[in-house]
Structure formats: C-alpha cells, structure tokens
Design a protein around this nucleic acid. Structure first.
Length: 802
DNA sequence: ATGTAGGTGGTTTTT
DNA sequence: CCACCTACAT
C-alpha cells in the first residue's frame, strides 16, 4: 500500500497532491489551462480505488466529450496496471514486456474498471434511462420504453419543423423552426418544462414557443424517442419523482467526479445534486461520511454559454455543497495554477487579456517554463494575404528542420467560413492539413440510413427514422402516398407502422401505390425475425443485403458509391467492436453509442499535418505553434457579442483558450480588409483583444505575401413485442405460422363502426373505422389508454359486446 | 415520383 | 460564395 501511494503521488505538485489525496466531502478544483487536471482526476480515482479500497462500482466520473472520457479511461487503465505490475510481477511497469503490459491492462479493464462508470453526461444518463425509463410517470401521461430512439439535432429539427408547419399551421418564416428548436433546447437545458415556459411568457411569440415545446414533447413520446436534451432532463424528473430510483443511484454513486464543471448547465447541475444528495438537502448538515463530490473546472475557459452552460454554477459550488460541521469552507477549494505547457511570455499575454473580464474566480497562471519568444502580430492587407502570411510562417519555421513537422501547427478561427481561404493557401503551397470537425461519421447519409433501419426494427414507433428509409432504396413511394398514410395515422391515432402493415387500409387509402409499401414491410418483417438472436453487426449486414441498399450502391458503380460502401463496412466494424467490448452487445446499446459518438479522430489519415479548426474545437488541446486568425472587431469578437458585456467576456475567454493552447509560439493575425461571403471588401478594425495584450510581449511583423494568389401487419408488431420481453418458442418462426394461434372466435361476424368489443390483451374497445369490405376487412379499434390498433377480425382474439 | 432551377440566409456547437 | 430548401416542371 505504501508503494502504491508513493507511486501515485510522486510526480505531483503540492496542489495536485492535495486534490489527489482528497477522499470524502466536496471539493472544487480550479484548474487553469495546462495545469495537469486530467492527471489530478485520474490519480485521484486510482487513489480512491487502490489507496482507500473504494469499490469502483461506487464511482461515477462524468465528462463532456467522448474524447475526454476515453482519455481518462486509458490513463486510469495504465495507472492501475502499473500498480498491478508491482503486485503480480514485483517489478515496475516499464521493465515489463509489451505483451505483459497489455495483459495487465486487459486484467485491469475486466476486473477493476468494468463497474466504474466513466463517460459523458449523455452516455451515462442514457444508460440510466435504459434501466429505469419505464418507471417514470409523466404528468402529461406521456410514455417511453427502454427501446427509445435517440434523435440527433437533425432528427429533432425535422420533428419541430413538422409541428410548426403541419400541427400548428404556422408560417415557418415568422416562426423559424430552427429558432424555436433552439429556444426549446434552451428551456430543457435550464430544467424548464413547457408549463414553466408558458408561465414566463408575456407575449404571443413566447406562448407559441411554449405550445410548440408541449407538442414537440408529445410528438417525441409518440415516436418513443428522446432528443439529446431529454437524456439529461428526463432523468432529473425521474429522480425527483421516484424515491426508490433516486435512492438506488444515490447509494450506488458515493464518489462523483465532474470534469469541466464550468460547462455544466442547470439540468446537469440538478442531476449531480440529486445523485449526490439523494433524499436529503445538501446544504444543511449533510453527511459526507462515506461520499464525495469532486469537480474540476476553470471559469476562464467557459465558452459554451450559448448552449446554456453556466459557469456561475462552478462559482456557486462551495455554497451549494457545503462541507460538514467538521470542516471549514476553505478546505473545499484547491487551485491548480502551475502551468506546464506554455512559455511565460505566452502565459503573461493570456493572463493580461483575461484580467479584462469582471466575472472571474481569481486565478493567475504561473509559468514553469522559460520566457520563450514574443508573440507575433501579423497585420495583413486582406484575408488572402493573411492566409499567405500564415503559410509562409509555417514554411519558414519548418526550413530549420530537415523533415517538415507539420503537426506542430494549428490554425484557429472564430467561424468555419474562414477556413476556405486558409485551405486554398495551404493547397497552393502543398502543405498537408487536416480540417477538424467537418462532417461527422454518424452524420453521413449512408450511415444514417443504415442506423435508421436498425432504429425502426428496435423501435417501430420511430417515424422519423421510418420515413427516412421507407423509400431508400427507391421503392416508388412518394410524398403524396406518405402524406395520405400519415394523415390516416394521425386521424385514427394509430401508429404509422401498423397502418403500413394492414393491406385493407392501404388499399382504401392509396390503392395501387401500395405496392412499394408491401415491398418495404416485407423486408422489415423479414428482418424482424432476426432481431432476437442477432447482434448489431449481423443485423446491419442483413439490413444492407435484404433491403437492396448494397446492391443499389453496387449498381451505380461511382467513386462516391464506393466510398459509401467503405463507410458502411466501417459501421459494421464499429458494431463488431461494440459487441466485443460490451457484455450484452445489445442493439439498443449500440444505437445509443452511435447516436452519442462523434468520432473526431479524423487525424488518423495524416498524422503529420497542420490542424485547422475553430477556437471552440481547440479547447483541451495543445500545439507547439498556434495561429489565431481574424482578430477583427465583428469577427472576433463576433458582431453578435460586441455590445453585450457578458457575451464579449465569453469571446475574450475564447481568445484566452486559443492563446493557452500554445507551447512555444503564438501568432495573432488580422486583415485590414476582408470580404465575407464574396461580397464587398470591407475595411476592418483590429480586435479589442489585440490592445489588451501588453505591447512589450508582442512583436509586430509585416507579413510576407507569397507570389501566387490570384486568387409493418399488426400481428407482427404485437409478436415482436412479446418476443423481445420474454423468450418464447415463436421467436424465429415465420409470421404466418404464428398468425393461426391468434385466430379468435369472431369469425363471420359483420362489424360496423361504433361496435364495442373485448380483446384478450387490450381489453374493451370501440370500432372507429372499418377498412375494406366483405372478407377483406380490417377494424380500427380504440382501446382506452392502450391507444388505437388495426385488427383483422378473423384473426384477432376479440369478442363482440352488445 | 423525381429532377433541377431559383430563392434565401449565413457564429460558435463537447452531446 | 455556397449549402439548403421550396417550387415547379417533367
């Protein structure tokens, strides 16, 4: 044990040591840029487990990005493996063979980390929801099941748009769906319900937004879907409402760690508070005897307020989570101010800049490195010469090296639109570059299509996904057909999927155009037979083959279709990997991962290249040389923040983040003239931030401009539900074989609208519509709270009631 | 049912 | 300047 401690503690400074040794009670760690906060976090977790015998099952570590979660896991794995190296082999980690190292890491992963929850807010709480969502009782009577779909920004946007234009009949120009979605999202992030919003509304527009919010929620529930915000908001409501559920998670997670606490929003804060405090109020006489809350953050790096992040939550931490009677408040704060990344000139510049902000926690980064070079100001004529000046600088700095090291350079910008000119210049000079945060893997059309198939198989209520793939590949199902079926579904309040599976209602509603729908439901019903016994990888393979998606791509034979096929193969690989990494390898879990993973590791294509990205994307990274571009009033700071002090302060923090990414050199550039989207050239004013950096830290330089430049039937639906919840003998039998089992006693009865009946499973119902006539009829029946269904009277277990 | 011509609007975005 | 959406033509 003492060996453990030695080894965990030895490379830490005083403040880090205090943070790592902290075990019980609340602790706020203010961690400046480059001050080793990930080290503090991982070493503390290791110390909890190894030094204090805390069961990893009781630890919850939350991050904001997958990347941060992944890094934390990896580093923790190594730390614990190093520990094991001593115990098992009696020698330090470094002297072990690689094969033994890997063996140890695998052991650690399987024995120690299996039950430790590390992940993003969204992934962890979607996991919680997969356990407990069916225990939630909504005040509006809405329901979700554990097969819920997760809608990404595009899917939810689609839904909102539909609600605005069709459900509410509003003009999308006056009521911009994008804006409405943003306002709803904002409300959700502030833990506000539609009713809360309605109470606050003092004008018609706000009332409309509240109404849209309410309808949007109903719509999500009908689709058995949740958007990103719901993954956090729903757990809050569930935990507030259900004492047993709350107590369970509270007792389970005795040690909670939150990274980037300044980026938490109201909803995330509520979540943390609920789990930490359980059924008690945290402020008064809270018993911290066997638990802790440990948060790490830096108010100066809060740059996501537009996503409802609120750094005042960080500032309020000590007040929110007061230490117990035996400790005083002072012991609940540790500042990590020693910077191990940047030269002192760079730190001085960053410190001077950020001092211009009024809302801060007092903190000064202290250098551990030499003065280094001065920062360089690049004053350029226009955006093209700015780009040229940057490429020139990169080239000349590389001339001092035999082999160009491009990966040491990052070019940062405020808006994505700025990247084009920069790219053109890099291409011209044949400098390899990687542009960060472009099209995400799971956003690609073919990937979204394949995933949509999987979503519909798991969750037949998911209409957004269903409508996405109903005519992909082409089955001759057009807009009007879909519109008619949707209308019917809405009018009778019967899920679209059930409508699609009823031959009579199709004949009556769309007649000849039913052919394509038959094709579609046949494929889907076939695929459903495999759902019970196949993993996501095999299912995807089957989807692509049986739907005709793959053969469609093959027949087109273009280069683009080949790319798409490769991407789909990669998706199957990702599914296989998921199956290997998880115990259950369940489809629902895979779908969550797919929805919440934004694979930004695009750098693997060319590891040695210049990085281009937005300042927002640069947070948490570091580079030898950093270029911050477009330092002009209206661009950076952006024109939308320029006259609002709090927004301007956020822009300043963004600039601070940019500067503190650099280890050795910082270049700040501005153009005297710039044209945004091809319009007029406009004279610019240099950014206020430039004037906030002491002159003696900056080296003005005239830029060298380079030469170039010119510049579903119902039976199946029921069946699959039975199948999924309890294993039974029908699981893989064809549908027709099962159908007979349902043959009811009502054969030969002639039905009329308004007839009452009793169904063996759904109970009492009333016929609201009859499709077809004679032998070929279907009944649309409304069952109290079970919703409405379409039944075949010859097969359904129903009995007429007079 | 599907292709293309015009019109519009355009910070940032961990999930 | 360019990506996206709507409207109209085929």
């Amino acid at each position: 044990m003492s060996q453990t401690n030695n080894f965990l503690f030895k490379s830490l400074n005083n403040q880090q040591l205090q943070a790592v040794k902290h075990v019980y009670g609340p602790l706020l760690v203010i961690a400046g840029a480059g001050s080793g906060k990930t080290k503090a976090l991982t070493h503390r977790i290791a110390n909890l487990i190894e030094g204090n015998s805390i069961d990893p099952h009781n630890i919850l570590a939350v991050t904001f990005t997958n990347k941060a979660a992944k890094e934390m896991k990896a580093r923790l794995e190594v730390l614990l493996a190093q520990e094991l190296a001593f115990n098992q082999f009696g020698q330090p980690w470094t002297t072990l063979k690689e094969i033994d190292q890997n063996q140890l890491r695998t052991n650690v992963q399987q024995e120690r980390l299996q039950n430790l929850w590390i992940g993003t807010f969204h992934s962890l709480f979607s996991r919680l929801l997969r356990y407990d969502i069916e225990k939630y009782t909504d005040p509006e009577g809405l329901k979700w099941t554990r097969q819920f779909s997760i809608y990404d920004e595009t899917d939810s946007q689609t839904l909102v748009k539909e609600i605005i234009s069709q459900d509410m009949n509003l003009d999308p120009k006056r009521y911009d769906p994008k804006k409405i979605k943003r306002l709803i999202s904002n409300a959700k992030n502030q833990c506000l319900t539609a009713n809360d919003l309605l109470e606050k509304a003092d004008n018609n527009f706000d009332k409309t937004v509240a109404d849209a919010y309410k309808r949007y929620r109903i719509s999500l529930s009908k689709n058995n879907s949740l958007d990103f915000d719901d993954l956090l908001l729903l757990p809050v409501f569930l935990l507030r409402q259900n004492d047993i559920v709350r107590d369970y998670w509270h007792k389970r997670f005795k040690h909670i760690l939150v990274d980037e606490y300044q980026d938490t929003n109201r909803t995330q804060y509520e979540l943390i508070k609920l789990i930490t405090a359980g059924n008690t109020e945290p402020k008064k006489f809270f018993n911290w005897e066997d638990r802790s809350i440990f948060v790490v953050g830096d108010a100066d790096q809060s740059i996501y307020s537009f996503r409802a992040a609120d750094f005042r939550i960080l500032i309020g931490f000590q007040e929110d989570f007061k230490t117990s009677i035996r400790e005083d408040a002072k012991s609940s704060l540790i500042k990590l101010e020693e910077n191990y990344r940047s030269s002192s000139n760079i730190l001085d510049a960053a410190n001077s800049l950020i001092e211009n902000n009024s809302e801060r926690i007092d903190k000064v980064l202290k250098a551990t490195k030499e003065k280094g070079e001065l920062l360089t100001l690049l004053s350029c004529d226009d955006e093209i010469s700015e780009a040229e000046a940057i490429t020139n600088k990169i080239k000349s700095l590389n001339n001092f090296n035999q082999n160009p090291i491009w990966k040491n350079f990052a070019i940062l910008y405020r808006t994505r639109a700025q990247s084009r000119v920069l790219e053109e210049s890099l291409v011209r000079w044949r400098i390899p570059y990687t542009i960060f945060g472009g099209l995400r893997f799971y956003d690609r059309r073919e990937i979204k299509d394949a995933i949509a198939y999987l979503k519909v198989l798991v969750n037949s209520s998911d209409n957004v996904s269903l409508l996405r793939i109903i005519n992909v590949p082409r089955r001759g199902i057009g807009k009007t057909t879909i519109q008619k079926l949707n209308e019917l579904s809405n009018r009778l309040n019967i899920p679209l999927w059930e409508v699609l599976n009823d031959k009579q209602s199709l004949e009556e509603t769309i007649g000849r155009s039913s052919k394509g729908i038959y094709k579609f439901t046949e494929v889907m019903n076939d695929l459903l037979c495999y759902l019970e016994n196949s993993g996501p990888a095999q299912l995807l393979q089957l989807i692509l083959e049986k739907s005709g998606y793959l053969s469609d791509l093959l027949s087109s034979g273009t280069e683009e279709s080949e790319d798409r096929r490769n991407n789909l193969q990669e998706l199957i690989n990702a599914a296989t990997q998921y199956e290997e990494e998880t115990e259950s390898g369940d489809v629902e879990g895979f779908l969550s991962t797919a929805a919440l993973t934004t694979d930004n590791d695009t750098k693997k294509n060319n590891p040695n290249s210049v990085t281009l990205m937005t300042l927002h994307n640069s947070k948490g990274l570091e580079f030898q040389n950093v270029f911050i571009t477009g330092l002009e009033q209206g661009l950076f700071p952006s024109h939308r923040s320029i006259d609002t002090p709090s927004l301007l302060e956020e822009e300043r923090r963004l600039c601070y983040v940019g500067i503190t990414r650099a280890k050795e050199r910082v270049f700040l550039s501005h153009a005297r003239e710039r044209r945004l989207w091809g319009g007029m050239r406009e004279a610019t004013i240099p950014s206020i931030f430039l004037s906030e950096i002491p002159e003696d830290l900056m080296d003005g330089e005239l830029p060298q401009t380079g030469g170039a430049s010119i510049r579903r039937d119902l039976h199946l639906d029921r069946l699959t539900r039975v199948d999924r919840n309890s294993p039974n003998e029908f699981a893989n039998k064809p549908i027709n074989a099962v159908r007979k089992l349902y043959s009811g006693p009502s054969k030969g009865k002639s039905w009329i609208v308004g007839d009452k009946l009793i169904h063996s499973k759904f109970g009492k119902g009333e016929i609201i519509h009859i499709f077809g006539s004679g032998e070929k009829i279907s009944l649309a029946v409304k069952f109290g709270d079970k919703g409405s269904k379409i039944l075949d009277p010859r097969l359904a277990p129903i009995r007429y009631v007079s």
